[in-house]
Amino acid sequence: METIIMDMIEAFKSLSYFGVMLALTFEFIPAEIVLPLAGYWVYQGDMNLYLTIFAGSIGGVTGPLTLYFLGKYGGRPLVLKFGKYFLIKDEQLNKADRFFERYGGGIAFFGRFVPGIRTAVSLPCGMLKMNVWKFILFTYLAMLPVTSAYVYLGYKLGPRWEQAGAIFSQYANFLLIPIALIVIWFVMKAQKQKQRQKLKVDQ
């Protein structure tokens, strides 16, 4: 299976930046492989670092968008039927549902950093008819730092690009902690706005 995936990714290379975006659109191809490998292509001089990061971030949105529309227009029955083809299990979907109920649209952003549901979060966003532009914005903002880290690591490691995943996991907290603080600030701000609106209605 890994050999097939690698052959597919190498085929996408012929399409340059569009190929990077396209490879990430298929959720069954791990971004942890595509992005460091794309960084290696930058190292080889075949691509520009910033354009590769941009293409990777766009691909990080188009993939989730597929699941978003599956949830929006297919509903839960269709999701349960075809979710397995996107490597999504019922347990992941149930967890994503609970997260959405608790945090609302913000899950499109910080749900990307929660192991076990990061792929499935797109489905409840679609099923509950979250605004598609808000979904795209939150998803892009979540994918940009992760994409940048993986591509940069692949670029710096060069021929050793396969080590990027292990290094990212080792230092992920340095990336995720500031993101978590931003999320907490966002949630607290949203709650305060709701309380103010409630007080105005009561008055």
Score class of each variant (00 low, 15 high):
198 K>S: 04
61 V>K: 05
35 L>S: 06
110 F>T: 08
179 I>F: 01
189 K>F: 06
37 L>N: 05
184 I>K: 05
93 L>E: 05
123 L>K: 06
180 A>Q: 01
98 R>P: 00
183 V>F: 15
139 T>C: 04
47 M>C: 01
203 Q>I: 13
177 I>Y: 12
145 P>M: 04
178 P>V: 06
17 Y>S: 03
104 G>N: 00
90 D>V: 10
52 T>P: 00
34 V>S: 02
187 V>C: 00
118 R>W: 03
52 T>W: 06
98 R>H: 09
146 V>N: 02
9 I>S: 00
36 P>L: 09
106 G>D: 04
60 G>W: 11
173 N>K: 14
127 M>W: 04
88 I>Q: 05
173 N>Q: 10
170 Q>V: 01
126 G>M: 08
115 P>L: 15
108 A>R: 08
113 F>T: 12
74 G>C: 11
95 K>A: 05
66 T>G: 02
57 S>R: 10
85 Y>D: 01
29 I>D: 01
86 F>P: 01
62 T>K: 10
76 R>A: 14
166 A>I: 15
185 W>C: 02
13 K>Q: 06
72 K>E: 06
115 P>E: 11
73 Y>P: 00
91 E>I: 12
201 V>T: 11
198 K>V: 00
136 I>F: 10
106 G>Y: 13
157 L>W: 09
35 L>W: 10
118 R>A: 01
112 R>I: 01
168 F>W: 09
160 R>W: 09
117 I>W: 06
161 W>P: 01
23 A>R: 08
105 G>V: 12
128 L>N: 15
169 S>G: 02
106 G>W: 15
3 T>V: 14
181 L>M: 07
2 E>P: 01
48 N>A: 11
46 D>K: 13
178 P>C: 05
160 R>T: 11
90 D>S: 12
40 Y>M: 01
37 L>E: 05
99 F>V: 02
22 L>H: 00
175 L>F: 14
85 Y>F: 15
185 W>I: 05
77 P>A: 13
166 A>D: 12
35 L>D: 01
10 E>I: 15
87 L>W: 14
37 L>R: 07
141 L>R: 07
163 Q>R: 13
108 A>N: 06
98 R>S: 06
159 P>H: 14
14 S>F: 07
111 G>I: 10
54 F>W: 09
112 R>C: 01
60 G>R: 11
61 V>E: 04
188 M>I: 12
94 N>H: 13
7 D>E: 12
165 G>H: 11
201 V>N: 08
159 P>W: 13
79 V>G: 03
125 C>S: 08
66 T>D: 03
84 K>R: 15
48 N>P: 02
160 R>G: 00
78 L>F: 03
158 G>E: 06
98 R>K: 14
101 E>W: 07
189 K>A: 05
36 P>G: 07
140 Y>T: 10
194 K>V: 09
85 Y>A: 03
22 L>W: 10
41 W>H: 14
32 E>Q: 12
24 L>F: 03
172 A>P: 00
162 E>I: 12
154 G>Y: 13
156 K>Q: 12
100 F>W: 09
115 P>V: 15
64 P>C: 08
116 G>C: 07
8 M>D: 12
47 M>S: 03
3 T>L: 12
37 L>G: 00
33 I>V: 15
64 P>N: 10
59 G>I: 04
82 F>M: 08
53 I>S: 01
